[in-house]
Amino acid sequence: MNDMRILERDVDTKEVKIAARDVQVYYGTNHAIKDVSVDIEDKTVTAFIGPSGCGKSTFLRCINRMNDTIDVCRVTGDIRIDNQDIYDPRVDPVQLRAKVGMVFQKPNPFPKSIYDNVAYGPRIHGLARNKADLDDIVEKSLRRGAIWDEVKDRLNAPGTGLSGGQQQRLCIARAVATEPEVLLMDEPCSALDPIATAQIEELIDELRQSYSVVIVTHSMQQAARVSQKTAFFHLGNLVEYGETGTIFTNPVDPRTESYITGRIG
């Protein structure tokens, strides 16, 4: 089993999970994303890097149509998951978001118990047949979020009472509870201390086994540590996309090089 997985990790060509073509995003009159085309692979961690305001978070939010909740935002172009257009009018964004989970910059547990936080997704999507089923899903998800051991004795305590790192892992557990295929992470460690960050990064590496993970990060070291593929955004353009190692050691575009060496950003 283990050998198989190591083998898999080294395989370069994987199934394409998300395919974006000519994506444009407008906030009112502001053209925030320009002509972005990218193929994101399954069972891979893909990092989006770039200076603040470059559009990396905006693009991330297009993938599960979170931008729909902002009135002035308009998206054109083509984004496909498993070769299915997610902006097809027949697609229900609600179902899409169950398939494409999201973890936010600031840990945002609901003001409910730990159990209810995790059980919320399965409940609304009707994933559990009975209470035992739901208990099962909650435990599995908390284990996958690498927080089970810390909270198993206080599942009924409020989620807001946990520390920042624990809260974020709870949010990850909450996201995986709906059994998504893609996990979007919007700067998941920016509000955390180094130790909590290390725990989350370790977790991301484990999640790669099961999901296609897309992470937006400010920290280039983090991108280098956790991702296999990296995309560099600048002023709404996707400047360069490729193997993480290549991007950091041998970038093609001079803008990428300037950013990585700290001259812009």
């Binding site: 599960n64 979170m66 909740t69 899409l96 978001r97 169950a98 936010f104 997704g121 996201a175």
Partner: peptide
């Protein structure tokens, strides 16, 4: 707003 985002992100209506 983070509360709403968290819930929409899970696919809640």
């Amino acid at each position: 707003q983070a509360m709403r985002d968290g819930s929409y992100g899970l696919g809640a209506t």
